[in-house]
Design a protein around this nucleic acid. Sequence first.
DNA 1: GATTTTATATGATGTTTATCATATAAAAAT
DNA 2: ATTTTTATATGATAAACATCATATAAAATC
Lengths: 194, 194
Amino acid sequence: MRYTTDHKQQTREQILSAAARQFRERGFDQASVGSIMKEAGLTHGGFYAHFESKDELIANVIRGGFDQVSERFESQFNHLHGEDWLRTWVDRYLSDGHYHAMDRGCPMPALAGEIGRADAQSRHAFTELFEQRLRRVMKEVDAPQDQARRRVLAAVSQMSGALMLARTFDNQLADDVRSAAAEQAIATLVGRPA
Amino acid sequence: MRYTTDHKQQTREQILSAAARQFRERGFDQASVGSIMKEAGLTHGGFYAHFESKDELIANVIRGGFDQVSERFESQFNHLHGEDWLRTWVDRYLSDGHYHAMDRGCPMPALAGEIGRADAQSRHAFTELFEQRLRRVMKEVDAPQDQARRRVLAAVSQMSGALMLARTFDNQLADDVRSAAAEQAIATLVGRPA
DNA sequence: GATTTTATATGATGTTTATCATATAAAAAT
DNA sequence: ATTTTTATATGATAAACATCATATAAAATC
């Protein structure tokens, strides 16, 4: 079947989107090529017309995860600055919405565990994408570069750690972790005690 | 072969220890029953004399992970109190040793991602073990109960998040994350700005 | 020393997996 | 309208996996 020029590109994006969902929800191993292709509305064999291997798919999903999160945030909050921007960032990151959106949220709490076990090349790519994002957030922190960097690193650890833990806990504790981490992360970023 | 009364118990513990290592290093899926039994010096078939299923093994490894971490810490630092205890806790948690000991350290940064995808029963067990540990740490925080609870939750998120991220980054960034998180976590716990 | 008991080993089964060679069908080009 | 091109489908292959039935061998008991 020969479709319009960008039809293959569209299919590729459907595969990527299904993979992004399933990887976060089930993990790299349990999300099989077959089930990803099924969710994309195709059969398993066609996969290799789009990607060389499952590993290549994984690499692309990681890259896409950071891009999506950045784009979504930049487009919705480019009118905010400094402290307002930072507060909004933390609140959104630890919001109910993001907490429940394990299947499409930030790749760090959902995938970092598995990426930590990947080869050096994948880890390096992940590091570069993170640093890009780190520099962006640093811009909004009112402090000298090296101070700002330390504060953002501390806050990001806290935020992604809280989300990861909240998703493993049930009920009350999940909410408490998010709220406690949000309070401290904001305090750290704006440089005032909680 | 009929060995001494507790020989089976010893073998069971060797299986648990091999599983604890491999689960952290490779993840639940990639660590097969076969490879775990091989590391324990046995063949795969004998596994089912010790555990009903791989899931039961996973549940036992999670339980053991918390126990080990607690025991190790309590036995080595029961002479410390309050701020000293807390500082030592944070420093050890984010130390080079623990950073490199992915295969035998705290189960949270290594396994939380996968446990988040487990069934409600496993997640509930994990929650209970965590709460136990939480109450222990709270005792050393010099603040009213609810304040102490919030501070420890914030600090634990930060510490486990930092360790998880450090293990996915390469080199410099890994060190920076740990050091920034340690500084802020201590500040939070002792109630003084960094 | 013969018998019983039981911890571990062997080997088989059925399922799932990633990957690939080949087939099909429809759009595009002629 | 025929031919060419190519996106997807089918079906096969080989490996890995969890689980289980059965076998073996050695310690304990008599």
